[in-house]
Simulated assay, not measured.
Amino acid sequence: MFGAARALTASGTGSLSYIPGEPFICRAATNSEELQGPPRQLKIAWNANAACTVAAAVAKERGIFAKHNLDVDFVNFGGSTDQLLEAIATGKADAGLGLALRWLKPLEQGFDVRITAGVHGGCIRLLGSKAANIDSLESLRGKAIAISDQASPAKNFFSIYLAKKGIDPAQEVEWRQYPANLLALAVDKGEVQALAEIDPLPYLWLKEGKLNEIATNLTGEFADRTCCVLAIRGSLARSEMPVAAALTRSILEAADRVANDPADAAAIYSGYGGRGSLEDLATMYRSHTHHRHPVGAELKKQLLLYTDELRAVNVIKRSTDPAKFADRIYLDVLS
């Protein structure tokens, strides 16, 4: 079922990933292509409450955007993913950060938006009720899992993960939708036996001691996968490649800073309304892979793998060619 994914997992040929501390000069715009003149103004669409987009806030608050001659404003976007991608494609925003497993299905519609970098992995968790003895994937057969929406990246990821482990995510578990902040309460009340969500909520709930962590999106073969990605309006990337490169470099430099100083990232995220104590948030960020942000052939391979896996669980259309789709939605701006 996951034939294309299996075939590519073993192949590292042509892979490329940004190495923390390594200069980008060999893959990105040369000095002669660096942005000149007044700072280039850009708008980035994001969700300020999402822990996984903290690299953007770090880039702004610690002067990384400014260093790359960018003047960035944020557009806090609470609408659907389709609306967010349409806003980028039509110029209401220039770029956005979000989760690949939420964006791939809408990108199938053909929005002129190009992914330029993976930012990190590790922010999606599956937690089981200790009271209901849910401590493994096998114990989830015939049980209900709380999710915040039916197209959530948590549902998409764990549908893939369950299927790979021989559990039919459509027939052998039930997905029940609740408001995100009520998922743990639904488990407490016994309405469901597990929950799947993106940080910070599941990390904070895990600390309360009533839930087991069954898996994350770094478990097993997914240890090196990215989840959060940067995407830029296609017309901007084509007409102003140095701007797209400067923005991508800024986000990756900021992600590296999150990895090296998670306490500072926690303080910045908290300042944007993030919930949780600074100590808890810093520990949460240490559990993510902000030091690993793939670009180039490695990222394109990951997008292909996700597409193939989403086809296998009937999220992406079976007629979609994963390799052609990855070619269409990814753009290398750093070579």
Rank of each mutant, 00 (worst) to 15 (best):
I64Q: 01
A66E: 14
K67F: 01
H68M: 11
H68R: 13
H68F: 14
H68E: 13
N69L: 07
N69K: 15
N69P: 08
L70E: 10
L70M: 11
L70H: 06
D71T: 01
D73V: 08
D73I: 04
D73G: 13
F74G: 06
F74P: 04
V75L: 15
N76T: 03
T81G: 04
D82T: 12
D82W: 07
L84Y: 01
L85T: 04
E86D: 07
E86Y: 05
A87L: 06
A89G: 04
A89P: 02
A93V: 04
D94R: 05
A95V: 04
G98W: 05
G98E: 01
A100Y: 03
L101I: 02
L101W: 02
R102I: 00
R102S: 13
W103L: 13
K105N: 05
P106I: 03
L107P: 01
L107K: 02
L107N: 02
Q109G: 00
F111C: 03
V113N: 11
R114N: 13
R114I: 06
T116V: 14
T116M: 13
G118D: 13
V119L: 15
V119G: 04
H120W: 09
H120D: 08
G122A: 12
G122M: 12
C123R: 05
C123T: 10
I124K: 08
L127N: 12
L127E: 10
L127C: 11
G128D: 06
G128N: 07
G128F: 03
G128T: 07
S129W: 10
A132V: 05
I134K: 08
I134A: 09
I134M: 11
D135R: 10
L137K: 02
L137R: 02
E138K: 07
E138Q: 12
E138W: 00
E138T: 06
R141E: 06
R141W: 03
G142A: 09
G142Q: 03
K143E: 08
A146F: 01
I147C: 07
I147W: 03
S148W: 14
D149K: 09
A151K: 10
S152G: 08
S152P: 05
S152A: 13
P153K: 01
A154T: 08
A154D: 10
N156S: 10
N156W: 00
F157E: 06
F158N: 03
F158Y: 10
F158Q: 05
S159P: 07
S159T: 08
I160C: 10
I160R: 06
K165A: 15
G166D: 11
G166T: 08
D168T: 00
P169I: 00
P169K: 00
Q171M: 05
E174F: 10
W175C: 05
Q177K: 13
Y178L: 09
L182F: 14
L182G: 05
L183S: 11
L183M: 15
L185Q: 15
L185H: 12
L185K: 15
L185Y: 13
V187P: 00
K189R: 12
G190A: 08
Q193G: 06
Q193P: 03
A196V: 02
A196D: 04
E197A: 11
I198Q: 04
I198H: 01
L201Q: 14
P202R: 12
Y203D: 14
K207N: 11
K207T: 05
